[in-house]
Design a protein around this nucleic acid. Structure first.
Lengths: 208, 208
DNA sequence: GGGCCAAACATACCATGGGTATGGCGACAG
DNA sequence: CTGTCGCCATACCCATGGTATGTTTGGCCC
């Protein structure tokens, strides 16, 4: 029998995280005060510090909340049915779409490396959306769909490129159009990577 | 006759900027106090606020200082002698090298978009290193060296990819090796972009 | 059901640090 | 020599992250 207290506790916790996501998205990490977040969740700072060890910890909770949504969506596609090529293309499209979410963009992409520190951010991303991008590239190479580029490096380049482009897309007058253009350029590059050089077995997956 | 006072004033100002660059690089924007910066320049916060309107303004001065160094270096190469292709390749190499500078990486690439706001950062970058990347791609297309990809989009993708990779390079055990690998992947992509499709006059340079 | 405990908060307070208001001092013009 | 103004120091305010402690409340055992 699930305790009543646990329900309450979990409810306030998620209310805090929700408020954090909302405010961090709107005003950024530095621009939002803990009192404000607590107020939005109709509690005081005492409750906040009961659930989280500090502002950073609350941010990381918000980060995970935002990240998990994107991860679930991408995971279904990248590790779903279909050919490696189709899954990669679907994942690409879905990732660009996800990047248009203001919360994901500001919290997970822009502020997280600064707030959490790049090292910790990278570690977290490795288990999330970046990991999926990486896996998709690896799959493409192993299936012989594209040339045997170094996986780690290429994944980092692609992830950085898309993250950066995401802001450009979101900030443009016609996001849908610019998004399609971005996808077009990436696909064109991938096409050219597979045009030549058959590559039945993936060798040279790079170190690092 | 240049006034003595102006010498002093300019000297303290540059001392403040130098200290800001150093501390922002080491501890980040949020982790650095103005007192500390002032102390390093052997003045007080009063002097700091005489020269700058606030912490943000000081950061922007540090940003410009760091950015101008990179810009000057790249400008000489990208707009220098040689074929468009060689200049682009030289610029690419120089940019990767520049990204290894901790100050440029943390201040100009990582924290600036967060501290200054992405809009303002983009505007500043347009006149600096990003503008050069953009110009280099444009030149390649106009010279018919590579396919007519949309300039704005591709520049954003490339800039984002390299910026992101820069941190990976700097954080790796063997930066020189990883840097070479990154350059290798980019060059390979460029090569494949020029392998096909002769493109004497650049059409379709994208909008946005 | 009554008392006890611990979790889940609230309240009051402190310290740091960005920002401001004001005062002093020395260089330069007249 | 004197007034003025730029350059900078001192003292202060206050918003905010963090802490220490008090208070309520649900759950459990007897």
């Amino acid at each position: 029998m699930r305790s009543r207290r646990l329900d309450y506790s979990e409810s306030t916790r998620s209310a805090l995280v929700d408020g954090a996501v909302e405010l961090f998205t709107k005003r950024g990490y530095a621009g939002t005060s803990l009192d404000e977040i607590a107020k939005r969740a109709r509690v005081t700072k005492g409750a906040l510090y009961h659930h989280f060890s500090g502002k950073q910890a609350l941010f990381e909770a918000a980060f995970e909340a935002v990240e998990s949504l994107v991860y679930d969506r991408l995971d279904k596609i990248v590790n779903g049915p279909g050919s490696p090529w189709d899954r990669a293309r679907g994942g690409l499209s879905a990732f660009i779409k996800s990047c248009l979410d203001p919360a994901y963009q500001r919290i997970a992409i822009h502020e997280a490396p600064v707030v959490m520190g790049w090292e910790r951010w990278r570690e977290a991303e490795e288990r999330c959306s970046f990991g999926l991008v990486r896996a998709a590239i690896q799959a493409l190479i192993q299936a012989g769909e594209i040339a045997a580029v170094p996986v780690d490096i290429t994944a980092r380049l692609l992830f950085g490129a898309l993250s950066s482009a995401a802001t450009e897309i979101a900030g443009s007058a016609d996001p849908k159009k610019v998004g399609a253009e971005v996808e077009g350029v990436i696909v064109q590059l991938l096409e050219r990577l597979r045009a030549t050089s058959p590559n039945p077995a993936g060798e040279e997956q790079a170190a690092s």
